[in-house]
Design a binder for these strands. Structure first.
Lengths: 204, 204, 204, 204
DNA sequence: CATGAATGAGAGTTCATTCAT
DNA sequence: TATGAATGAACTCTCATTCAT
């Protein structure tokens, strides 16, 4: 269940010991960045958490930015992968978006630090940030386009809708996943309804 | 008739010259933070832009954080004030949200740096960030509640809807205001439609 | 009862208002230096305590050092003057030194900050420090010499004795005046006895 | 056989090179503080004297205060150790105090900067100052108590006597060790006599 | 691969002092 | 005299990165 090894691009270790150290650094970095944010985080704190010497860090990463970037890619994949399986179960393209919101809210609540790290990438490595949200939007757009195709939702600009839906999800995630502790079912239902009526196929 | 005295919390100057210096610092800080972001920004760069000595900064602010906080409050007020007058013109509560989105998109496109500064507050002064979005949501919630009252929109959980709408706006603002350069009318229309059908009053 | 005006050398004010400001500054400085020590003390804190503007300070003193120096001279005089009257009452030159110790201990206990300020002058204005203790020693030396003359004490090197006695007093003052809270009578008696007879075993 | 490992409290180096750097910093600090006093001293001057980079300072010490504290502890030990061996040679408890004074005067004259540094600790790190003199007094008290026990000195309050003796020594040290250049034998003799027999007129 | 000491540029911050009003 | 804003040199401290072992 370890996060995909293929996402680890930089300086792939050749020995088993090396792989362990790399993994330890990545985990330590997730903790450190989640706790303190990028700028307050320090390499020496990361290596301390990982139980290795300062210098060892540079065996695996070129810079603080590099490990952060690596991490964002890793986490971005985790967010995606946590939603995907739930989507399979959705009866149709309209329902799918409600399911996706529910899955996202749950994930966010369980991994608040991931939300934070990804968001901070806007100011650390804008390209990663943009990539993350652009990818997300592209996936939603594709789903919507397919559903339109199938007549499950009304015709319209799929990309605009995708960004609108993603924004909805993210802010509901912030308010009811990261900040709030209240039950989430009502939120999902209310939002699903808004969405359903909003993009449901036009009858008659 | 002084410029926004309510935003000036710290060390109010007692002379006219002092007021000018303070304003110059605030304006310089907006430029600097907008250009470079909080961490890359430097006090000496701010004072240089403002045309005053380094030490003068500390006559008015206790720290880099302090002026940033001040600025976020200031800008948050500007965002609010830019949308408010347009709302007056809306025929009803349903249309109002479309109008608000349009106003917001325009504002964001003209003041990309404000968008950036407010967003960065999540990592510099989370309380300000939270306050900004909580205030925004509260205003939307109040509008929706009133509109429900008047039967202009369907009954439902106004707060959830407010956060959903705000999220939509913010992400459309990011995609089509900050990043994109394309015309914005289609976006507003598409989103308004999504919203309209989503929360329109249910017809008998 | 105000400290001697003649000790105020710098920029003697001509108006009544000026005299009040000067006195306020000196009192404020005594508090400030006593509380925080020379280096932690700040001019603006002194002027704030005195209830005047920062710039007013320089109407009366040339620098932070200058007011400190002034203060040490002032306080040095106070120490001297607090002991002098008690000496008059002493029956002879030997008893006088015990009386002086008693008077000094009392004074120190009541004015701990004065002890501190004078001592700090060693590092702020060594000349003042040296002057203070040299003057003290000279007064003791003179007393001892006169008493020798009168045969009230044994012949010997009056200056060495004076410094020894002063050191005794100062350190007993530190231990039992500044730090300790216990009754002081025993201390005075024990020290007086040491001074009179030394600590050699009493011969049968 | 490492140099005084007990004085090294903070961030003990793990390599030989580290130990050398630490020692160099401590020596440089003694020079710097002795020359300029605490507040005029600068970290960069210390590192320059030690021949290392500014940042290296913070590998071993948290602050200017921290190294000063370390140094006072170190020097306090040196004062103690310089007197101790001479005491062994004293024939009895009464003579011992004269010997101690002599040893102290010599030490002070050779290490004027140590005297200064320890005294300045009163204003930089009062706890160290207090500790230094409290320890000294405790050692003298113990000697006196033992000598009383053996009947070598008259009965009395050992602690009061100890502080009196220490004060005598310190002030004679200031006057004849730090400030004066004259021969010191007379001083020791006069003070020893005072201590032994006091200054009451010789009877009969 | 691992270690941890060394580096040094650069930042924020302080505050005694000056000066125009 | 009094005011308080303006000044700017100087300092401490941080930490990502390098490198010899």
């Amino acid at each position: 269940m370890d996060p995909k090894p293929e996402t680890v691009s930089a300086k792939t270790p050749k020995t088993e010991r090396g792989r362990r150290t790399l993994r330890a650094l990545l985990n330590a970095a997730a903790e450190e960045f989640g706790d303190k944010g990028f700028h307050e985080a320090s390499i020496s704190s990361i290596t301390a958490r990982a139980g290795v010497a300062t210098g060892s860090f540079y065996v695996y990463f070129d810079s603080k930015e590099a490990i952060f970037k690596e991490l964002v890619r890793d986490l971005s994949g985790q967010v995606r992968d946590s939603v995907a399986p739930r989507l399979m179960a959705a009866p149709d393209g309209l329902a799918a978006e409600g399911v996706a919101l529910g899955a996202y809210l749950e994930f966010v609540r369980q991994h608040k630090e991931i939300y934070r790290i990804i968001d901070e990438s806007e100011f650390v490595d804008p390209a990663s940030y943009r990539e993350h949200y652009t990818n997300s939007a592209a996936r939603i757009t594709a789903r919507l386009a397919a559903a339109m195709e199938r007549g499950e939702i009304s015709p319209g600009n799929a990309e605009v809708r995708a960004w609108a839906i993603m924004g909805m999800n993210v802010f509901l995630g912030l308010r009811f996943g990261v900040w709030g502790e209240e039950a989430v079912d009502d939120v999902v239902q209310e939002a699903s309804q808004l969405l359903a009526r909003g993009i449901a196929p036009v009858k008659g």
